[in-house]
Design a protein around this nucleic acid. Structure first.
Length: 98
DNA sequence: ATGCCGGCTCAGC
DNA sequence: GGCTGAGCCGGCA
């Protein structure tokens, strides 16, 4: 599967995450045909402005926000959608999107 | 071609 | 739950 197609699949999947729900890099990766969690993370990082994708709804397998440049922004966006963080900065498992 | 690093994961302790 | 190491992927130097 060519890299461009995987990227397209990643975008399509991320675009489907409902508001107020989250999913993980690994889950998104598994829904594609061959992408790895790292590729998903990389894809999210290089998103241009105004893409409209809910990149903030993608968190790591520990159900936490991976520390990086825009981590703060991501946390705020999620909170704005009504997503609460449990002790340890974790997102409730019920918020996970299949 | 070679090597290193990444918004990651998972198996093993 | 925390720490470590491998994974064998793509992008970039």
């Amino acid at each position: 599967m060519p890299r461009a197609d995987l990227l397209e699949q990643i975008y399509t999947i991320v675009a489907q995450i409902p508001e107020g729900r989250v999913t993980t890099y690994g889950r998104v990766a598994k829904m594609t045909e061959g992408a790895t969690a790292r590729m998903v993370g990389s894809a999210m990082r290089h998103l241009p402005d105004g893409h409209g994708l809910p990149w903030h709804r993608v968190i790591n397998a520990s159900r936490r926000i991976t520390e990086h440049g825009g981590a703060e922004r991501q946390r705020e966006r999620l909170r704005a959608e009504g997503i609460a963080f449990e002790a340890g900065g974790r997102v409730s498992a019920e918020r996970l999107w299949p």
